[in-house]
Design a protein around this nucleic acid. Structure first.
Lengths: 204, 204, 204, 204
DNA sequence: TTCTAACCGAGACGGTACGTCCGGTCTTCAA
DNA sequence: TTGAAGACCGGACGTACCGTCTCGGTTAGAA
């Protein structure tokens, strides 16, 4: 979210449409130029807005980028495909498709890089992007437990660490495959990954 | 690697110590400043070298960063700890320790980010950093097969995709946990991750 | 003068006190900051007034400055000191004292500078500041003629060019001495200047 | 003069031609745009030079302007026209012609305005522009003394105050007539002014 | 007394220049 | 030929200010 003044009343109110135009312009510029060539002036120009207006709402390029791409991640869904295997494959393919989009991958990696020594940015990424997608793991896990595909939570146990673990493994594998190894996430790879995730190395 | 002139003989030879000093200075600057504040002038100053010397050996900032951190990843080892579980836990802890080092994580993410739209840099990262660590998976897998912990490769099958998969899962999970989720990789998490990797979700 | 609405009757009338507060604030800001650092926001703040209020009354910074300093020049007087020499010395000292005031000199030069390519501003300066001070020359000259210190106007001659000339010589010399040469206008200089003005170079 | 590094030896030397190109570009920009619209970027562009190069040599717009116009004033000459009256008329006309040039008048007034609260700039103006033109008064006075048109310096007297006075009166009258009163300096006015200067008010 | 038009403070807006910084190149002299 | 030094071009940065605009709210005179 952009930085909104909190308790103010007076003065001309900020243009609501400007926020949307700026975020859209940011994504468009990321697609065309990539992170390194992205400039605030260019974004302002595309959005039909003055540079001042950007800086009034976001402190810098990285904060703006987080907001610009966060909405993309909210598009991920988990339709019930009938089995844990199918559900996992479905979400992995969706996530891989998202990471193919230049604005998503380029912005995500750039802000993560900057966040390695910027605690505030780290928090912003977590709250705006990462934590919101854990809903997918929570839901998929609940379904699989109902179907009896995985054991129910033992009473008195906090499921959060397990949820975080599964999330890091799935998201991490896809991100690493796509952005570090630089190989495509195709049906074959997804099938292999899902099999490994469900039954483990020992039976691979 | 820095770019060494190939067939030249005459003239003053390049200072051999300069390469090491520059790479060391780069790592030091990364620790103190992070990627965003890192400047070539600063690196040159720390290394007691002129900017010209940097550019004579590396084409740009990103190439220099790749070389500066690549050597860190070569320190990873896979001592035989007697079981697949122990070997996995050992290497995960080593890798996590490496990613705790600011110069490693900050440079790695920065170059990966830039590589999202720079194919040449992508290749350089793969050859200098990523592919060289697959040796760890190859070796661990061979040992586990000898011990009978995992089945041998079926004849006529290329083991490479399986190796790549395991590598992406392990490296991806640790990277995502550390840099995206921003949570520590401690003994508890490593145990849980290793259990999941060995036996899969179904039995978790 | 500030721009007053002409034929209007209804609605809330403009605050009369605001005009004075704004002009006073402008002079104070000029003293402290000089022309280059003077900002409309700052003036508004000092006057306890919104920026809108300034722009409702003056079209821009330069017009405001002209009005702010014009009143200072109206303070100049020409008491009858008994002789042309004494009258000239008296008015020169007064004028020099005025130009010592930072708000006067800084604003005067700034608007003159801007006026070099702004005809409207040039007119405004002449009508608000320059022409109004010619009264001093007219009066001093009339007195000297009565005393017989200078010859009477020949019949059929327009005295205006002569008045303008004397005005430019006196005002110009003081302004140049103070603002361009940057030397003080002290009693010695005034005596020398008056002697030169009265009897000319040949007898100096 | 631009700011030249003093005791340095090493490194690429500053481009000598850049100085000239920048000063010429500054004058051209002043003619076209006037002071208020003059920008450093524009000057840099006209000179075919980077903005950094400007700031490496001049601290700001005003210092640059002083140097850019100073050379114009050095063009003033004092050919011997045979009499003091003719010499005065000649130099006044030359000076008036100079002040008709937009780059001269606009820059001169702007820097004088800024100098009203900038002591360093005041010094720069004096040394680069003002003091150098006193040579004209010195020479004209010497000639007139030789011709017997004005009395010789009394022994034991410092002629400097008298020179400064004459300079301020002549330059001040022309500047005030041109820039403040906004009236032309034509032959009629010059004749009247010279007469006043030579014989004084009493005989006018 | 109520209406209402013009006023007011506050502050966001588009635009534009500022002066700084850095990436990557080029030019000099010395080793 | 390499190296140190540092000037060079190009261009983005984030800030500051101008003059305009849009709010909600106030105030005096007209109805």
């Amino acid at each position: 979210m952009s930085t909104h003044p909190t308790g103010k009343r007076t003065g001309r109110p900020r243009s609501a449409s400007a926020d949307l135009a700026i975020l859209e312009a940011t994504r468009a510029a990321l697609v065309e130029l990539g992170w390194g060539k992205l400039t605030m002036s260019d974004v302002a120009g595309r959005a039909g807005v003055a540079k001042t207006t950007l800086y009034r709402r976001w402190a810098n390029k990285h904060d703006l980028a987080v907001d610009a791409v966060a909405v993309l991640f909210d598009e991920l869904q988990l339709p019930d495909l009938g089995s844990l295997r199918a559900d996992v494959e479905g979400v992995v393919l969706q996530f891989a498709a998202l990471l193919e989009r230049p604005e998503a991958k380029t912005a995500l990696m750039a802000v993560v890089a900057e966040a390695t020594n910027d605690a505030a940015l780290r928090l912003r990424i977590r709250s705006s992007i990462v934590d919101r997608q854990k809903r997918l793991v929570v839901e998929g896990r609940r379904r699989a437990q109902r179907r009896g595909e995985i054991p129910p939570d033992p009473p008195g146990t906090d499921p959060a660490p397990q949820i975080d673990l599964i999330f890091d493994v799935i998201a991490g594998a896809v991100v690493h495959r796509t952005l570090v190894s630089g190989e495509p996430v195709d049906a074959t790879w997804v099938a292999g990954f899902t099999a490994l995730l469900l039954t483990g190395l020992a039976s691979a």
